[in-house]
């Protein structure tokens, strides 16, 4: 009962964030300098006759009162009707739906890889605190943390695609190969390796650092001494008591990293010419394709919110103290 009410309250908080994000999205073109017509309808305002302009304005609904425009905007969002791309003339909803799976493939795989690697390395470093592994891994992680992503991506292309020729450097599939079944899957996997690697490597340091720190503090807890005094094997102490408890703060970091990963796709997908949402956003920005920009922005926002919601609802399952 109480837990449900708290859950509802949390959902409410997310709903508020969503409303704010959508409203910003709505307000942005209307606040920018110049005619919103240019931004919303994507037409060369200066070249039109007054009649044409009125027709386009009416078509875009810009002659309506602001409140009506706002409500119409909401309606279009809820029905996934984002309008048309200026550049390609295709419905944005189609563009987005086509791109979403590719971006999810990259980000989710990268999340899993960075979670597993970061947690394992971080826990191990903390366990052997001050040892050679701890010191060297910490140095490498801090270096990676400050590496620009595009640079790393380009480095990988130069190394693995150009010099060694092991992996493809662009696209999600081999163009025109028309593969099916397992061959297609292998082709997709091959293309995903470098972007996923780049994204993962950029996320690992944050996970590693938080896991290392969290493990260090758990190692000093009294209940670890209790576990040892029970005669548990070191591995059991480490897995069931240290890592299990140290994971709690790391889940929050992971949820945040998902948001970062989405942001990272803008650069990574551009570097690897990968047909995902990030690339779509980049292209939209270059072409000043505002409706597409707005739509991708919204999708990213919702995705980050969902990731946080997931972490939030996962947390009580991991930490019984937060179950009310």
């Amino acid at each position: 009962m109480n837990a449900r009410r708290l859950g509802l309250a949390r959902l409410g908080q997310y709903a508020i964030v969503l409303v704010v994000a959508v409203s910003l999205n709505f307000a942005l073109p209307r606040l920018m300098p110049g005619s919103p017509l240019a931004l919303i309808a994507g037409v060369e305002v200066g070249e039109m006759s007054p009649e044409e302009r009125a027709a386009v304005t009416a078509d875009a609904g810009l002659d309506q009162p602001l409140v009506v425009q706002y409500l119409t905007y909401w309606k279009s969002i809820l029905t996934l009707d984002f309008g048309y791309s200026f550049r390609q003339g295709t419905p944005i909803e189609e563009l987005v739906l086509e791109r979403v799976p590719w971006t999810l493939l990259l980000t989710l795989t990268a999340l899993v890889v960075s979670a597993v690697v970061g947690i394992a390395l971080g826990a191990f470093a903390a366990w052997r605190r001050g040892g050679a592994w701890d010191v060297s891994s910490l140095t490498v992680m801090i270096a990676l943390e400050s590496t620009p992503q595009f640079w790393l991506g380009m480095l990988f292309i130069a190394l693995f695609s150009v010099s060694l020729g092991w992996l493809p450097s662009f696209g999600a599939t081999t163009a025109g190969a028309d593969l099916t079944g397992l061959a297609w899957l292998a082709d997709v996997a091959e293309h995903a390796v470098l972007p996923v690697l780049t994204l993962s490597i950029l996320s690992i340091p944050a996970v590693y650092l938080s896991m290392r720190y969290s493990t260090l503090s758990v190692l000093g807890e009294d209940y670890i001494r209790t576990a040892q005094a029970k005669g548990l094997r070191p591995r059991a102490v480490m897995l069931h008591h240290v890592v299990r408890t140290a994971l709690l703060p790391v889940t929050t970091v992971l949820a945040l990293r998902l948001g970062w990963a989405f942001g990272g796709t803008v650069v990574i997908e551009t570097v690897f010419s990968y047909p995902g949402l990030g690339r779509l956003m980049y292209d939209a920005v270059s072409a000043r394709d505002y409706p597409v920009m707005q739509a991708t922005f919204l999708v990213f926002t919702v995705a980050v919110l969902l990731a946080n919601l997931l972490a939030d609802s996962l947390y009580p399952r991991l930490d019984p103290r937060t179950r009310v």
Binding site: D222, R225, P320
Partner: peptide, 29 residues
């Protein structure tokens, strides 16, 4: 440890793992 010498520590608040049920912590021993 645990089998022939059992230990009870000072602060029962911090000496029990907060994320496991008490029966699990006893069963583990």
């Amino acid at each position: 440890r645990g089998a022939e010498i059992g230990v009870v520590f000072q602060d029962p608040m911090s000496s029990l793992n907060p994320v496991h049920t008490v029966s699990r912590q006893i069963a583990e021993a």
